[in-house]
């Protein structure tokens, strides 16, 4: 085979980088639409930037190690080298360097991403408390617009209704169909009824595992109207693939009208043969 294997191994970094380049130029064949889905959220770019940063960092290291590997394969091919193999006990300096460098890099990433993590998972949007001002001691957590419950294999959604509280008689129930008002901080209460699920809204860069028995809150601010996907990102059983929903972003007045219409449908209480349901 000679140097065939080193050429084969060279194909790994070439194809690997090629795939990413093709995907990133997402308007072109053959990987059309394989880069990020459209980001319609306020904070999504933070996640994207982190992703790109880590991709570039790991990409560089991937290319460097792959090329080193190919170089060694090429140089020390058995047919080209008549000399006997030499053994070495290694180099302490090198060992220390390639242990400390990755450790330092990981530590850097851990610190660098902290703010993004806190914004997505800890700094829940607040409402001004009795003093009427934000960022004071008496701020209250913004109540959830709706509770989204994952179950095998659908998303059951309960809107807080007129009183703004989920779990009361004026809740409005839908399945797989989440509407949210445009430009507002949306807080969702998320729960699981049965097994692990993961609520994934790709277009607002939001993904959170649902754990049975655990009440969690997620938030985002959508900046564009339209219809987007809700998917389950945690293998939850044989029907995992069909656990799809639809996120619709509407201006506030249209959202209110939609909610009122859902409420009217839910309270429907007459049937006559002429009028139908």
């Amino acid at each position: 085979m000679g140097r065939f294997w080193s050429i084969l191994f060279l194909a790994v970094p070439v194809l690997g980088v090629g795939c990413f380049v093709c995907a990133a130029m997402s308007r072109s064949w053959p990987l059309y639409n394989h880069w990020f889905p459209r980001d319609i959220s306020e904070h999504g770019h933070v996640i994207d930037d982190l992703f790109t940063f880590i991709l570039l960092l790991t990409g560089l290291i991937f290319v460097a190690t792959s090329l080193t590997l190919v170089y060694f394969l090429w140089k020390y091919d058995a047919r080209q080298n008549a000399e006997p193999v030499k053994y070495t006990h290694g180099s302490h300096v090198l060992e220390v360097v390639w242990s400390i460098l990755p450790a330092a890099t990981l530590l850097f990433i851990a610190i660098y991403q902290m703010d993004a993590w806190a914004a997505a998972k800890m700094r829940r949007p607040m409402l001004p408390g009795p003093d009427g001002r934000l960022e004071t001691e008496d701020d209250i957590a913004r109540p959830p617009l709706a509770a989204v419950t994952g179950r095998q294999f659908e998303w059951r959604i309960a809107y807080a209704g007129a009183d703004g509280v989920v779990g009361t008689r004026d809740d409005i129930f839908t399945v797989n169909d989440l509407h949210v008002p445009l430009g507002e901080e949306i807080v969702l209460e998320i729960l699981s009824e049965d097994v692990l699920h993961s609520l994934f809204l790709p277009n607002v860069r939001l993904k959170q595992d649902l754990v049975p028995g655990m009440r969690q809150y997620v938030w985002f601010r959508p900046l564009e109207t339209g219809t987007y996907d809700i998917v389950c990102a945690e293998l939850c059983g044989w029907g995992h693939y069909k656990m799809k929903g639809r996120l619709t972003v509407l201006p506030r007045d249209q959202f209110d009208r939609w909610l009122a219409q859902k409420w009217a449908e839910q309270e429907l209480s007459t049937y006559t043969a002429e009028r139908g349901e």
């Binding site: 659908e154 797989n176 349901e277």
Partner: peptide
């Protein structure tokens, strides 16, 4: 037919029958 349609669209909560709304 409308009854069957409703079951498909809404699913049957509390059972394994999911919604096929989409």
């Amino acid at each position: 037919r409308q009854d069957l349609h409703r079951t498909l669209v809404e699913g049957i909560p509390g059972t394994a029958m999911p919604s096929f709304r989409l």
